[in-house]
Structure formats: structure tokens, C-alpha cells
Simulated assay, not measured.
Amino acid sequence: VYNEMLVEFKDSLNFNPTALYENYPGLERYRKDAREFRADELFFKNKSESYELFLTEYYLKLEDYRSKELELKKEISSSGSKSERKKLERRLSDLKDKTIEEKKAFVKRKDNFNKAEKAFRGKKIDFRKERKTRNLVYIGRGWVKAGINLKGLTDEEIFIDDSDSLYIHILIPEPEILDVDINPWFIYTEKKKIKGFELFIAKTGSMLSSENFTDVEINSVKHKCKLRLEQNAIEKGLLRNAKSSASSTLVNFFHLLGFDKVKINFKTSDHQVVLNN
């Protein structure tokens, strides 16, 4: 919830955050910690990119050194002149010294990066731990209802032909979410009682106390839970099932009214454009 608030209320937090801090007591601390962590995250990201570039350049240099080393060794072995051989050997020695210096620089850079990476991981763990100090968990059980709204049907979207056999063709809107509900009791009978929702403080597992969270915070988490419930239902095919159910229900209904043939099509933006034209 706090993550989304930092984006949604960015301007309010910059100019007048007092009211938000009153309703969300943990937001000020969370915002401060988030800013510090994001600064650390950006710093480490830049450091990582720089290190990756350094590694690429180092391995290219190393490959070049090895190639030159092999070439010099071949020239030394094939040289017939002592003076020329000595020059080549000095060049080979200089190349080896340069390679050693590059390796020392590589080891030093690698050690520094490993220390920076370890430090960042520690900050990341601390940030996550801090986030859990005021962590409210909402367990919700409810219903998501989907259906077709036929109130907006027009004459142009209903075609009836009774020339040979009674035929009806209807263009209906796509199914939509009609309601998302989490009742206080999901199941309430003498034998079985299952709450519709429960609130817990995740850190300790203890039940909710009014001293720990404000009503605004609790309602924000409840709203988030409803959104998640709706999203899960959509992902599991609720709208697809509603489409199939609506189509078969309407076909059966019009057959009962005496229509021999029934055709149901779902309205899309393309259909609407054609009808409007």
C-alpha cells in the first residue's frame, strides 16, 4: 500500500504531507527509508555497470596480451640474431610486467566491488526487515460477480426475422465485473463458521489492535484485498466463463419464447463503429 501511495500522492507528499502522515503513521518513516534505499540502489547499479564495463575491457586486454605474448615467443625462437633476440625478450618482459600490473588492478577492483555488493545486500536486508515492522496482512474470502449489462441495448442491436422461421440475432456487450464483495462471514452456519476476512499483524502474528494501525490504513488494505480478489478471478477465467454462460442462457431463454433460431454476438469497439456509421 505504501509503495503505491508514494507514486499516487507524490505531489501531496512533496508539498503538504501532514494529513497523509496523520492517517498513515508509518508512511513518513517508510518514505524516508525508501528514499535512502533507492539512493543506495541507484549508486550500486551505477557501480555494477561500471564494474561490468571494466571486466569487459580487462578481458579484452588480457586476450590481447596473450596474443602478443605468443607472437613474441615465436619471434624469439625464430630469431637468428642475439641482439634482436634480446630486444624481443625485453619486450616480452615488459609485456609480462604490464600484465601483472593489470592483474593487480583487476584484483583490487574486484575486491572493492565485492565489498560494495556485500554492503548493498546488507542494506537491502535491513530495508526489508524495516518494512515488516508495520506489516498488516488481510486474509479475505469473498465473491466476484460478473455478467452482461443489457440496459443499453438499442433497436439496431436486435434483429428479428419471421419470414420462414422465427429468428433473432442480438449484439450484446462483453461481460464485466458487477460486484466484488467480502462479507464479515463467508460461511455462517451452526456447524461451520468461516470469517469473510481477518486482519493480522504479520510481524508477531497477533490479532489486530486499534493502537497499531489507523482506520484509514486498515481500509486501504481491505481495498487492496478486493482488487487482488478481482484480479485473481479474472486470471482464473471469470469473464470468459461469464461470456459462455450469458450466451447459453440467452439462447435457452429465446428458445422458450418461441424463437427457432437464436444467434448471440458480443459487441466490440469495431461493431460499435459500424453501427454508429
Rank of each mutant, 00 (worst) to 15 (best):
E84A: 04
F54D: 08
K104F: 04
L95F: 04
V107A: 12
I100T: 10
Y51W: 09
S81M: 01
P25Q: 04
Y51M: 08
F37S: 03
F120L: 07
K73L: 10
K123P: 02
F127C: 01
R38Q: 15
F106C: 08
D97P: 09
K123F: 05
E36I: 06
E41T: 08
S79D: 08
Y24M: 05
R134Q: 15
S67H: 15
L95D: 01
S50V: 09
I76C: 00
S48V: 06
V137L: 07
L136D: 01
K132F: 09
R35I: 09
K132R: 08
I76H: 03
F106S: 01
K115V: 01
G26T: 04
D126R: 09
R90N: 04
N135I: 10
N112H: 12
D64C: 02
K86P: 01
N112S: 05
K32W: 07
D126S: 09
K108F: 01
K129I: 03
F106E: 00
R35N: 15
K87M: 06
L55Y: 12
K118P: 04
R131W: 00
D111L: 13
K82N: 15
R35S: 14
S93T: 12
S93N: 09
S83Q: 12
F37D: 07
F37W: 05
L55T: 07
N46I: 08
F54R: 04
S78G: 00
E69D: 11
R38G: 05
R29Y: 13
L92Y: 02
A105C: 07
Y21H: 11
V137D: 04
F37Y: 11
E36C: 02
Y59I: 00
R85V: 00
F54E: 11
F113S: 03
K118D: 06
N23A: 06
F43Y: 14
F113Q: 01
L42V: 02
K103A: 15
K115E: 06
K47F: 15
E28K: 15
E130Q: 10
E75K: 05
K118W: 10
K61Q: 11
A116F: 01
R131D: 05
K110I: 07
L92P: 02
K123G: 00
K68P: 04
V107G: 03
K110D: 12
L53E: 13
S83Y: 10
K87L: 12
Y21E: 03
L55P: 10
E41N: 13
K86T: 03
Y58R: 03
I125Y: 05
S67C: 07
R91T: 00
E52Q: 14
T133M: 02
K86D: 02
S79H: 13
K61I: 06
Y58S: 01
T133N: 10
P25C: 00
K61Y: 10
D97R: 14
T99K: 14
E75F: 07
S67Y: 15
A34E: 15
S78P: 00
N112A: 10
D97A: 12
R128I: 06
L20M: 08
L60T: 14
T99I: 01
E41F: 13
A39N: 08
L136G: 03
L20W: 00
F113Y: 12
E117L: 05
E52G: 06
L55F: 10
L53M: 08
D64S: 07
L55I: 02
I76K: 03
E28Q: 09
K73Q: 12
R90F: 02
E75R: 09
